[in-house]
Write a protein that binds this DNA or RNA. Structure first.
Length: 129
DNA sequence: GCATTGACGAAGG
DNA sequence: CCCTTCGCCAATG
């Protein structure tokens, strides 16, 4: 039998319960997947919801593997606190993010979400798990 | 093991 | 509005 070493590595493909602990990334993905269509949220909001608001970077870091998780994570709905499409460069194409948002009736102007405040979706308030 | 980087946030200029 | 500095934590070199 093969005994997989307990490597502390990002299971971006399958963050299965390696023992029990769910990856921090999974929490992020789970929240992002619950973002309603046509709405957006920020890294800080997710981080704050997870209790790591001081580590908003980790949220973005988690999103780094969002392209390999299943089901896919609508990362296009996650922008920075300024409503800017900070992650557009990480998509298949630099314009993919805008296109995806455009399909959800989210207008993007100059790499920034229009009416970001209106479309903002705070999991800590709306979701409230 | 230390230094740098990073899809961020807040504060200051 | 733009840019810079600091903080925060994990991954990478």
């Amino acid at each position: 039998m093969q005994q997989p070493k307990k490597q502390k590595q990002i299971q971006t493909e399958k963050p299965r319960t390696v023992g029990k602990q769910y990856s921090f990334f999974e929490d992020v993905y789970d929240v992002v997947r619950q973002i309603p269509i046509g709405r957006v949220t920020s890294f800080g909001a997710i981080a704050n919801f997870l209790g790591t608001k001081l580590s908003a970077r980790m949220v973005g870091w988690a999103m780094n593997g969002a392209h390999n998780v299943n089901p896919p994570v609508p990362a296009q709905r996650v922008v920075n606190r300024n409503g800017m499409l900070s992650g557009k460069a990480h998509f298949s194409t630099p314009t993919k993010m805008e296109e995806l948002l455009a399909k959800e009736k989210v207008q993007v102007k100059n790499d920034r979400v229009v009416d970001f405040e209106k479309l903002f979706w705070d999991p800590a308030k709306e979701l409230e798990i």
